[in-house]
Design a binder for these strands. Structure first.
Lengths: 140, 140, 140, 140
DNA sequence: GTGGTCTAGACCACA
DNA sequence: GTGGTCTAGACCACA
């Protein structure tokens, strides 16, 4: 499971972690019953303060996605996947809608915007092979 | 000039105002030499604290888009338009890229994402008559 | 780093702070990579509202002198010093010019003015031990 | 009597007018019993709002420098000159001191500062012939 | 009426 | 603990 955190994209860091865990579960990369990476590990890997990771995990527990197992860590709950698939749709769609709303309000035409979108998607998917950097960024 | 502020979209309110002023100038709705709405007026119209409006206007002054005329208000500077057109592109593109990056990372396919985008754009532009969102779609 | 704020000298308080930070960097008292005093600390030390300090720091960030480190504070940027040395010259020179212009316009002769200047400089530098002004001459 | 107003030098415009009237009286350009220029005239000449001129004149009346003569305008009072000579000294000296204090605090040496001062004074007095800027320089 | 500055105090994310 | 944002409200100079 890889994470990609961008501190300046308007989504709080803990929320980015929440989302990416959900995406992993939706994708089936993170399966029910499986442990998620420990706070300490993620903290090191992402060079983010453990408190921030903690907050993400607490949120996921409150939402019924993760549960703690005594002395071991956090596991993905049985019925988490459908939830996560639904959430993913909402999260992605809402964020896109928000960006597109701004784009339309900016005065650019739907055509110009679609063209921007296509270019970005092309750059984001043209990734023949392996991402070079663990910590994140989709490589064109 | 109409504004549409969403306090929860991840962009600071003052920054939304900054952007929308730039968009207005880019579009030619706000012309060089013209006054922008006063702090107090905007504050009332958007029910946002005057200080927040002020901060947006200060930023626009520092960026050389607006200048204050003593006792009268703030005017759009002569050469502001090209700047604003360039800025608009960057602003819109960066935000779209950020949303699309998340979308791709979520595991959705480029096709699914494009489909979401098209639906949103259709909804945002199909506005024969009534704005779909209550809170203010700039018409003009 | 010591500050000396005079609320009634015609320079806005936040601007006095901006300048004195720049002076400190120009002098080498504040070095690249070093943290500046926190908003709260300065606020207490100078008995000035945190928002006012904040505004100064925001300005310094926009000018590329400081940058924020998440959760830790504000650091002096790498290449800040030359900028600050140049800025110092402009700031000091402009203010002196303005005061001297008024002095000349007042009808005093260049000789009288130079004499005033010399006396002031003598008083300001003759500080073997005790500051002459109670309100805070930066020592260091 | 010529005025030279700089809206950005930290001294309020009305206060600049107050001072320059006093300087004129100190110099003997404006004599006791003489009328000062009307609000309307000054307002046009300096392209400054009449209210601002008015405020300056009110201040001068409160300080006992000017007095109104029914239906005619404002005259310089009998004993105004010594007051104005004393005030001039204080005004000029205080402003210089303030600028020099900042200069010293900036870390520049007394020598560097004196050199700046001399250059400025030279530039300000070397006026063989025509003032470069129309709107301003006091003509003796 | 206009903007500019300042204070007071709150809440947030992050370390 | 750190800065970032926002609200509420005051006072000032200027038009």
């Amino acid at each position: 499971m890889f994470f990609s955190i961008d501190p300046h994209n308007g989504v709080a860091i803990y929320e980015q972690i929440v989302r990416q865990i959900k995406f992993g579960i939706a994708e089936g990369i993170l399966k029910s019953g499986q442990m998620v990476p420990s706070v300490r590990m993620l903290s090191q890997q992402l060079t983010i303060n453990p408190n921030t990771i903690n907050r993400a995990f607490q949120t996921l527990q409150q939402e019924g996605v993760l549960a703690s197992v005594r002395g071991q860590g956090l596991v993905v709950l049985e019925d988490a996947r459908p939830r996560c698939i639904a959430d993913r749709k909402t999260i992605v769609s809402d964020r896109l809608q928000s960006a597109l709303t701004e784009a339309i309000h900016s005065g650019l035409s739907a055509e110009q915007i679609e063209s921007l979108v296509k270019n970005h998607l092309k750059a984001l998917t043209k990734r023949n092979g392996v991402p070079t950097v663990a910590s994140a960024v989709p490589q064109e």
